[in-house]
């Protein structure tokens, strides 16, 4: 049982919000010591594993070009594109963003973010769509739209990223399994990540569809134009 002390240190350290790197190192060293390894032996295991897993940090090679593209307006252009999409309902705005975010993540484009996109762009657009179609939007509905806007960012980000062959998560899977004696290739892991990416998108679209339905039921229409037929 004492060998589980490393797990305990990680759980407590993360909950207490101590420095993540330090927590992991302390947990590792103490686990090694109670497991009967000598200090130099522990350093050797850590060092060897770190050298062997250098491929996990190959994303460093992409930083200069991404940095230059950000300087040249990469985010601004993406924002322009999203702003120009023609979605008539709240749910469709969110589903469209979810789709774009997920495909971008699968191509290793980190083009999302709550700060960069949800607050300044996606949430106002989703709320704007509701405002266009309905009158007197209550606080609860406004809050709900905010929640689903943030959710579309998280869902697209989480379940799209591992489709990229050299994503951090993919390399973590390859590296951790490798350390435990199971060999897999990054390509196989990234391909195996495709089905759940599709499920996540479909579930998100369904959730947003029901959001539209709920809003339409709760609020009264502004006018009986085409949008009313859309959301029925």
């Amino acid at each position: 049982m004492i060998k589980l002390i490393g797990v305990l240190i990680i759980v407590i350290g993360f909950i207490m919000k101590f420095d993540t790197i330090a927590v992991v190192l302390v947990a590792g060293v103490i686990t090694g010591l109670v497991g009967g390894l000598g200090f130099v032996e522990i350093l050797t295991v850590i060092g060897e594993a770190f050298i062997k897993t250098r491929y996990m940090s190959l994303f460093l090679l992409t930083l200069p070009v991404i940095g230059i593209l950000e300087r040249s307006g990469l985010r601004e252009r993406a924002a322009d594109l999203i702003r120009s999409m023609k979605s008539v309902t709240t749910g469709k705005v969110l589903t469209t963003y979810h789709g774009i975010r997920e495909v971008a993540a699968a191509l290793s484009l980190r083009l999302g973010g709550h700060v960069q996109f949800i607050r300044p762009l996606v949430n106002p657009m989703a709320y704007g769509a509701a405002e266009k179609n309905f009158k007197d939007i209550d606080e609860e509905t406004e809050d709900e739209i905010k929640g689903y806007a943030a959710a579309s960012e998280n869902l697209g980000n989480f379940f799209g990223q591992n489709v990229f062959v050299a994503a951090g998560g993919v390399l973590l899977i390859v590296g951790t399994l490798g350390e435990l004696g199971v060999e897999v290739t990054p390509l196989a892991v990234s391909k195996a990540s495709i089905p759940i990416a599709i499920f996540a998108f479909v579930y998100g679209a369904i959730q947003n569809y029901f959001l539209d339905r709920r809003i339409a039921k709760k609020l009264s229409q502004k006018n009986s134009g085409t949008t009313a037929a859309e959301v029925k």
Binding site: V34, G35, T53, E179
Partner: peptide, 24 residues
Amino acid sequence: ASILPQLLAALGSLFAAAGVGEVI
């Protein structure tokens, strides 16, 4: 934080060396 994935893999290999997996 960018070195975290590599450190976690190292932690995994220390867990393996110390036999944590068997206990759980």
